[in-house]
Structures are given as structure tokens and as C-alpha cells.
Design a protein around this nucleic acid. Structure first.
Lengths: 189, 189
DNA sequence: CCATTTTCTTGATTTTTGTCAAGTAGCTTG
DNA sequence: CAAGCTACTTGACAAAAATCAAGAAAATGG
């Protein structure tokens, strides 16, 4: 079983037949560090599953990069709003490291419902899960201090600790790298 | 046509037959100012459509109320994660004013797919829309100052301006009422 | 392995925002 | 209408976080 199949199995509880049907729609691809999976302004016509490496999602705001999220092994990544509503994407998605992904095209993605009877139910739970992640993040912004938000983030995202340039983490958390650096020092003492 | 039907029609492009089928699953209900639609710790077993009035969604955090959102006329409201995953809700949902709503039970909601063939597609777009709203909000936290966030919020939510106690708006935006008060004064000058 | 670049840390300072407290305005209700 | 609430504003001050600048550490690439 590939990691993609493993993931589909454990997360969506697909059976063997469905697994094979679905994973056949993805093709394997590699990106080099610095390559783009998606550029802002373009339409997002693909979704990918990350097999290994890290992908940074960011926007350009007045010449400054604002990092929205960094996805790692086991994440499905796409600009959902661009993919589903066919609008231009606001996000750049750039490989932070060499990246192995499995890619599915929009057309194939949209055909999943015909191929697998339980897809609508699965997709609903997938989208609800994405929504819940966002809700948790918003809650962290309205109810926590910078320090608490930093803690909360790393408890949920261990794999990013000491793996990602601080400036990106800082931007995701809505603070500066200096602030994180000071939080870290404080916590060592 | 009720407002609910109007909304279903314009937003989801349901035809007349589907409209009737769907809106029959909702029952009309009124809540008095201060009543709860949902209490934290309970499971969310309903979704409602707001016909008139305002509903505040908040959590208790160490004895302090953190307002997550205030929904007005035309919103569908539920704790999606509790409704779909049957987990206890973290949110309280309280009527800020007298409230007219249309309520659908979880069981009925889950049967929509059997009743209307295009429901899975519709639900997908609905969930994606909810997701996008959250994404925009997160972006406002990581890329804007308190003042910009305040502006951004009111441009998108005119109906709440001068209608809702400042403390709730402030909490939603992750700042204090005093800060908003000062932003407002600054903008008059 | 060394030079260069990038990232991280630290300190000094400024800006922003929060906290506390007092006062004002506006509503509600008897 | 007056009393009592509640919500809002304002000021003084404190705390948090941003900014700027310099230096240290780490990673990168010949």
C-alpha cells in the first residue's frame, strides 16, 4: 500500500476496491525545493496529497509574504475555493523542500462521485474537517495570547518544530520572528 | 415564498419542486432575547436558518466569554463539527434579540441527499463557502492590524454596525472594546 | 573546508494594545 | 420623568509586541 492508500484507508475508511479505484486517479510527481505547485492569480486545477516534504502556502500583500499554512506528509492540499468555484487563487504554494506528491486533476476529482458511491459522504466529512481546523485556528486568534498560540500550534504540529524557518511560522501565527525567538528563550529558563 | 425559500433559491439555485420539499423539513420557531439555541457541552442536533434577529456564538474560556461570531438574517447556523461528527459542542448560541428561525433536525438534514438529487453537490458548495469565510477571517488575523481588521469586518458586515454591543464585536475581532472605541474616534477626525 | 548567505537571537526603542478606573451617554422601566 | 442599568468613551498607565539594528549561529555552495 502506498502512503496515499494508507491515508485514504485510515482516514476515510475506504475498502480495498475503492482504494484502488481512487488512487489510480492520482499520478505521482516530484517538485524541487523552490518549485511552485500553484501561483497566485492562476486557477487551482489540482489537488495534491503530500507523500514527503513540505509545501508552504502564502500570499503576497503589498510586497510582503504572508504565510497562511505549511503542509506536511499526509495533507491534502488545494485552494478549495479556487478549485470548487473556479476563481483565481490568492495563494502561492511553494515547495519548502524537495517534495513528493500525488496529484489529481479537477476533472478527475469531480468524477469521484460517479466512481465511488460513498464519495459524497466522504467529501462532506473531509470538508467539515477542513472547516473545523479553520475554526480552531480562529479561536486561537481571538482567545489566546501570542505565547499561548505558539504553544497550541506546536502541540498540534510537532513535525514542523525546528524544521521550518521561523519567519514562516511567525507569519502563520500572526506575529514576528523576534517575538517567537523571545517566547522560546523565555520557555528555556 | 418565505425568506428561507428565497435564500435557498438564490443561493443554491433550487427549483420550485426542490424548494417545497426542502423547506417542508424546516419548522418555524421563535426565541426570545437571551434564549439559547445551543449550549456548550451539548451535542448540536439542529441547524437553523435566521429569518430575523441576531444570534451570538460564543465560548466560555476561564469564565470569560469569547464571541466567535454573530449571525444575522439569511445565515444558516449550526456547530458543523458537532452536527456532523456528533461531538459535544464548545459553543453557546444565544439570541441577542428576539429571533425568528427555521429549524431542521439532524435526522432530516441527513436525509436531504435522498430527497433531492443535487443535494451532495449543493452541500459541498455550502461547506466550501463556509470554509472560505473562515479562510478570509484567518487571513485578516495574520495580515492586518487591529484597525484594518475592524474596517474589513464592517465592510463585509454592515448590518452589524451600531446594532451589536461593542464588546461582542471586539471579542470577534480579537481586541478589546476600548481599542475599537479609539479606532472609531480616530476615524472621525 | 572556508566564504557567503541566510536564519536566528538579542538589545534598545517605539508603537500598539490591554488594563484599570472614572465619567458620560443613552436606554429601560417603574 | 427619574432611577438604575448598560454600554460606551476617555485618560493614565502597564504590558505586549513590533521595529530597527547589530551580532551570532547555522546552513549552503563552491
Amino acid at each position: 500500500m502506498t502512503d496515499l492508500e494508507q491515508y485514504l484507508h485510515s482516514y476515510f475508511t475506504f475498502d480495498q476496491t475503492d482504494l484502488v479505484k481512487v488512487s489510480a486517479l492520482f499520478r505521482r510527481k516530484t517538485l524541487n525545493k523552490g518549485d511552485y505547485f500553484l501561483k497566485a492569480g492562476k486557477q487551482c486545477n489540482q489537488m495534491c496529497f503530500i507523500q514527503s516534504g513540505m509545501l508552504r502556502v502564502y500570499a503576497d500583500v503589498d510586497g510582503k509574504e504572508v504565510t497562511q499554512w505549511i503542509s506536511t506528509k499526509g495533507y491534502f492540499v488545494a485552494d478549495l475555493s479556487s478549485l470548487l468555484f473556479q476563481t483565481p487563487s490568492r495563494w502561492n504554494m511553494q515547495a519548502l523542500t524537495n517534495l513528493e506528491i500525488f496529484v489529481i486533476e479537477r476533472a478527475e476529482y469531480n468524477r469521484l462521485g460517479e466512481i465511488i458511491s460513498k464519495w459524497p459522504e466522504t467529501e462532506k466529512l473531509f470538508l467539515a474537517h477542513c472547516f473545523t481546523m479553520m475554526e480552531d485556528r480562529i479561536f486561537s486568534f481571538i482567545s489566546m495570547t501570542a505565547e499561548e498560540r505558539y504553544q497550541f500550534f506546536f502541540e498540534k504540529n510537532r513535525e514542523l518544530f525546528n524544521q521550518v524557518p521561523l519567519q514562516y511560522i511567525a507569519s502563520m501565527l500572526g506575529m514576528t520572528p523576534e517575538t517567537i525567538s523571545r517566547i522560546r528563550r523565555k520557555q528555556l529558563q
